[in-house]
């Protein structure tokens, strides 16, 4: 058995080495389009590196025992009556506790500190979730988009997302940033991100806003395109967007007319009452958002069977 132990430990080292080689080098992540994404990927990788010896230890001893000690047919005698080994158990307890505490500190606490290190934002974007679309505004520029289909972001600027909801809980997730935060009715939540890559949804579907908290029928398609631009390109975009607002295109926006809000009371039979506002607002976005994904707006086969408009009435004042 002593020989078995030596063989098993050697195998464990070998498997750990192979596993660690993979952990250090594997390309397992989708596009990382923000500073945060890079260090959160590092945090994920660090956890794999730390978990690998534990993982290989259990698997090595599990499979070594299965292959080495399996008996053909019923054995004629029992195994050796080993009861316990207190130093081993105590050591096991100490090492696993140490590992657990280590991962609390790094990447846990370290990562949390890094995410909230800098509370100064260059750009604030307010996003309000509502079944099943997002309202986006840039308060610094007086720009507001109801039922937005796209968010424009400047690269290398620290952006603060301020979130809330008018009806149920939604969650704003941008996979390429590795960040998400729930949009909760009656609460203001936020997170910071510093986009770095000049990419958009059309180039990679992970550069998108996806609702990540189950919010009803249209949950899966409660998405928005994301476009990250060079800072000067973003300035130009803002100027153009403001010019459009001045020229009166605001009328196209959904101001939540109360007449069609009232007939949404019955949850079951109002197929049409959401459609009134569907096409409005979209025209204000000056970029092509046809990215191959089914975006929320204008998607006529979406069966919005729940009349949420009775809750939409006050959305403008909340947003």
């Amino acid at each position: 058995m002593k020989k078995d132990l030596i063989i098993a430990v050697i195998l464990w080292f070998v498997f750990t080495a192979v596993g660690e080689y993979w952990a250090f080098n594997a390309n397992m992540f989708p596009i990382a389009a923000a500073e945060e994404a890079v260090f959160l990927d590092d945090a994920f990788r660090l956890l794999i590196i730390l978990a690998m010896p534990v993982f290989t230890l259990v698997l090595t001893f599990l499979f070594f025992s299965i292959l080495r000690y399996r008996s053909k047919g019923d054995p004629d005698s029992d195994g050796p009556p080993m009861r316990t080994n207190t130093p081993l158990a105590a050591g096991w307890l100490a090492i696993t506790t140490g590992l657990a505490i280590f991962v609390v500190i790094n990447p846990g606490l370290k990562g949390m500190a890094e995410l909230s290190a800098n509370p100064n934002a260059d750009l604030v974007i307010q996003v309000t979730g509502e079944q099943w679309h997002w309202d986006v505004s840039y308060p610094q520029y007086d720009l507001t988009y109801q039922r937005a289909t796209q968010i424009a972001l400047p690269a290398d600027a620290r952006v603060k997302f301020e979130l809330t909801s008018t009806d149920v809980i939604h969650s704003l997730w941008i996979p390429a940033f590795r960040l998400k935060m729930d949009a909760v009715p009656g609460r203001d939540t936020s997170f910071y991100v510093t986009p770095t890559e000049i990419v958009d949804t059309e180039m990679d579907s992970n550069v998108r806003v996806q609702c990540a908290e189950l919010c009803g029928t249209g949950h899966a398609r409660m998405q928005m395109a994301v476009r990250i631009m060079e800072p000067d390109e973003f300035e130009a975009w803002v100027a153009e967007a403001k010019a459009m607002t001045m020229s009166g295109d605001m009328e196209g926006m959904d101001m939540g007319s109360s007449s069609d809000s009232m007939d949404g009371m019955d949850n079951m039979d109002s197929e049409s009452d959401n459609m009134d506002g569907m096409d409005s607002g979209d025209g204000d976005m000056d970029m092509d958002t046809d990215s191959g994904m089914d975006m929320d707006s204008g998607d006529s086969d979406m069966d919005m069977d729940s009349g949420s408009d009775d809750m939409n009435m006050n959305s403008d004042s909340d947003g």
Binding site: M1, D4, V58, F61, L62, S65, I66, Y69, R70, S71, D74, P75, S77, D78, G79, P80, M82, T84, N85, L88, A89, W92, L93, T96, T97, A100, I101, V103, V104, G108, L109
Partner: peptide, 28 residues
């Protein structure tokens, strides 16, 4: 986060028991 990471410690003892029981046994 701390309590959740720590709950892996008592759970880990179950693995110790399973592996220790198999070690040197006559597995059927």
């Amino acid at each position: 986060m701390i309590t959740t990471e720590l709950i892996s410690v008592p759970t880990g003892l179950v693995f110790l028991t399973a592996l220790g029981t198999m070690w040197g046994g006559k597995l059927i």
